[in-house]
């Protein structure tokens, strides 16, 4: 359940979440967190996320940080949109009043503040949450060492 590391304990197994039209190669047996490592490699490939996180921001101007952030934002955003399209858990606007019903799903609603008594609860929505109802991640790469997140690039003259 590798994606669970990043996306909350999902109820769907990743193998089943693949798009039906991609029978493709049979996924390699998954070891521990292989899927998470592959996602990191994808975020680096498309959005240079690891380069960004590994950099010491001290000494760079906000202008420079901003320019780099655009590169990361553009690439990672496209990747998220494509493979783990997001929607809010609760569709109403943040700041509005909300009723949490009796027997609510504790994974989908997190109560904060003065938590006492029993459901239904009346409160204010602070964060609408995120979910990815239809993750469409590609199958795990076959025959690759997933611990290599980005290859060294050598340009030949």
């Amino acid at each position: 359940m590798a994606w669970a590391v990043l996306w909350g304990a999902s109820t769907t197994a990743p193998a089943k979440a693949l798009p039906a039209e991609a029978p493709a190669v049979s996924p390699a047996p998954e070891n521990g967190n292989d899927g998470a490592l592959v996602l990191l490699a994808m975020l680096q490939r498309e959005g240079r996320l690891l380069d960004f996180l590994q950099e010491d921001l001290t000494g760079f101007s906000d202008e420079q940080v901003g320019a780099a952030a655009r590169v990361v934002h553009e690439g990672c955003r496209q990747l998220i949109r494509k493979y783990v399209p997001l929607s809010p858990v609760v569709s109403q606007g943040e700041g509005s009043a909300i009723t949490v019903p009796a027997g609510f799903d504790a994974q989908r609603f997190r109560l904060t503040g003065n938590v006492s008594g029993s459901a239904p609860y009346q409160g204010t929505l602070k964060h609408h949450g995120w979910q990815t109802p239809k993750p469409a991640l590609p199958p795990l790469p076959k025959g690759m060492d997933v611990k290599v997140l980005a290859p060294a690039e050598i340009e030949l003259p």
């Binding site: 380069d51 960004f52 420079q64 320019a67 655009r70 590169v71």
Partner: peptide, 18 residues
């Protein structure tokens, strides 16, 4: 629309041009 191009090296901040 801003257009940013990353450099090839791992140092993203020093090499990104905007």
């Amino acid at each position: 629309v801003p257009v940013t191009i990353a450099g090839r090296g791992s140092s993203l901040l020093a090499s990104t041009v905007k």
